[in-house]
């Protein structure tokens, strides 16, 4: 497959009278990491929710491996089986252990055997250094540990693309590193990733493409060094100046 894994074409999303997305075009090639940056309320989360079919788009298309998944004839549940989503607030299931959180989708949705799913879950947890927490419940874990489990839960279904929605925004600063470390490793292994983030430094290191979302469109996109270091658009420069002022770059 040579086309992009995930291809957003003219995506429009309206809430009431508020046009949050006004025609977003964005393509994520295989094994590519695309970082979505932009101010608060610029539509980063909405875009990810549209891509994962948690919202219906009001116009435009989303293609996954060339298939138009915004076609209402497509079974959204089957499409979501091929994607992994990690949320800002972790969204682990509090009534299930770490291991059960991770094995849930592989067994229930993908019909894999319990033993098989457990084995893989243990291997994944081992890789993020949480093998000893498999039996714990999420509320016994720190935010960083929970978010790492959430990443593993998304990876356990072997998705075509991983969508990360500001996954470090709810974390204490000293816990951000461990979560980004996991993302870095996942990216290095060739996972296709679309991530909304405020971590400009991380985007610069890991992303292949940085896309700046403003006023409901992708205003500027390109290699991180260009977009973050020498942006063309004044709006992008303005946004980055504010981020630098806040001491986050």
């Amino acid at each position: 497959m040579n086309g992009p894994v995930l291809d957003l074409r003219g995506v429009v999303k309206v809430f009431g009278t508020n046009r949050v997305l006004r025609g977003v075009d964005l393509a994520i090639g295989e094994h590519r990491v695309v970082a979505l940056i932009g101010g608060s309320g610029s539509g980063k989360s909405t875009l990810l929710r549209c891509a994962s079919l948690l919202e219906t788009v009001d116009d435009g298309q989303v293609l996954l491996d060339g298939e138009d998944i915004t076609d209402p004839r497509v079974d959204a549940d089957r499409v979501r089986q091929r994607m992994g989503v990690v949320f800002q607030a972790y969204n682990l299931f509090p009534h299930l252990s770490v291991l059960d959180n991770v094995t849930l989708a592989p067994t229930v949705v993908h019909g894999r055997s319990r033993a098989d799913a457990r084995e893989e879950a243990h291997a994944l947890l081992d890789r993020i250094g949480l093998a000893d927490k498999a039996g714990e419940f999420p509320d016994r874990l720190s935010g960083g540990q929970q978010q790492r489990v959430a990443i593993v839960r998304a990876l356990a279904v072997r998705p075509r693309v991983l969508l990360l929605d500001e996954i470090t925004s709810a974390l204490d600063p000293e816990l951000v590193g461990e979560v980004l470390g996991v993302v870095r490793e996942v990216a290095a292994q060739g996972m296709t990733i679309l991530m909304a983030t405020h971590e400009m430094g991380f985007a610069r290191q890991v992303a292949d493409v940085v896309a700046f979302l403003h006023d409901g469109v992708v205003l500027e996109s390109g290699p991180p060094d260009q977009v973050l270091g020498d942006p063309v658009q004044p709006r992008t420069r303005q946004f980055l100046a504010r981020v630098i002022d806040a001491g986050r770059l």
């Binding site: 429009v12 009001d58 116009d59 435009g60 298309q61 076609d71 209402p72």
Partner: peptide
């Protein structure tokens, strides 16, 4: 607000 595209109209028709 710009009018919806041909594609979106067909999607809406199908949902209806």
């Amino acid at each position: 607000m710009p009018p919806p595209s041909e594609l979106e109209l067909s999607r809406r028709a199908w949902r209806r």
